[in-house]
C-alpha cells in the first residue's frame, strides 16, 4: 500500500523523539560551554614547550636544535638560537632558544614536531579555545606563552608524562654512571627532573 513506507519512517522519528528524553544512546548532546565532555588523553591541539621546576627559563628543555622548525609541514615554528649556554636537566651546558614562536593560525596540530623532538621538549596541549582578540600579534604565540611546567603536562596527559619522566630519569642515570665510570671524582649529577619541583634551576 502506498504510504506505508512513510508511516514506518514516521514511527522511527517518533521513537527517536521520545527516546531522546531518556534513552542513553539517543541522548548524546551536551550544552557546551556550560557542560563539557571530558577530553581523551590522546587529544591534541597546538604544541607547548615543557620546562622543569619553577623557572621557565632555567628549566626549559628545548635546546634550539631547530629540528621541529625544519620538519614542521606548514612551517609555523620560528626559532632563534641563543649565543650563550645554560645547563640542561643533566647539567650539560646547552643552547636555548632566544626566540621560539609558533603561529596559531598556521599550525595544524599534526604532532610532527613532538614526534621528531629528541629532547622531549615540545608536547601537544589540549587547549582548544584559542580565539584571540587581535588578528596578527596575538595569533603568534611567543616563548613565554608557550612555556608550561611539567606539572601541567602531568595534569593533561598523566600516563604519557609518567613515561616521559621515566625515560628521562633513565637517561640521566645512564649518563651519570658513565660519568662516574669515566671520572672517579664524586660528581653528583642534578636530580632528574620528574614531577618534583626539585629542579635543575641551579
Amino acid at each position: 500500500m502506498i504510504g506505508t513506507g512513510i508511516l514506518k519512517g514516521m514511527a522511527v522519528t517518533a521513537r527517536n523523539f521520545v527516546g531522546s528524553y531518556f534513552d542513553e544512546e539517543r541522548l548524546i548532546t551536551v550544552q557546551y560551554p556550560e557542560e563539557r565532555n571530558p577530553l581523551p588523553e590522546n587529544y591534541r591541539n597546538f604544541p607547548f614547550l615543557l620546562y622543569d621546576g619553577d623557572d621557565p627559563h632555567a628549566g626549559l628543555r628545548c635546546v634550539a636544535c631547530k629540528i621541529c622548525e625544519k620538519e614542521c609541514p606548514p612551517q609555523c615554528i620560528y626559532i632563534v638560537k641563543s649565543d650563550d649556554k645554560k645547563p640542561d636537566y643533566m647539567g650539560k651546558p646547552q643552547f636555548y632558544p632566544k626566540v621560539f614562536d609558533i603561529d596559531i593560525s598556521v599550525c595544524m596540530s599534526c604532532q610532527i614536531c613532538v614526534e621528531v623532538c629528541p629532547f622531549e621538549a615540545i608536547k601537544m596541549d589540549k587547549d582548544f579555545e584559542l580565539s584571540k582578540r587581535e588578528r596578527f600579534n596575538h595569533l603568534l604565540q611567543r616563548k613565554e606563552e608557550l612555556s608550561k611546567p611539567n606539572e601541567y603536562y602531568h595534569s593533561i596527559c598523566p600516563t604519557e608524562a609518567a613515561d616521559v619522566d621515566a625515560k628521562l630519569a633513565a637517561a640521566a642515570e645512564a649518563a651519570a654512571k658513565k660519568k662516574a665510570a669515566a671520572a672517579p671524582a664524586p660528581a653528583t649529577p642534578p636530580a632528574p627532573s620528574g614531577s618534583s619541583s626539585a629542579s635543575a634551576s641551579s
Binding site: N16, I28, P40, Y43, R44, Q111
Partner: peptide
C-alpha cells in the same frame, strides 16, 4: 535535518573513537 542528525549521531560515536586513538576527530594523521 532529521535523517542527517541520526546519521551524525552514529558518526559522532565513531569520531570519538578516532579522537581517543589519534587525538583528533577528523584530522587524524
Amino acid at each position: 535535518g532529521t535523517p542527517l542528525m541520526y546519521a551524525f549521531r552514529e558518526r559522532e560515536k565513531i569520531l570519538d573513537l578516532f579522537e581517543s586513538l589519534s587525538g583528533s576527530r577528523m584530522m587524524c594523521d
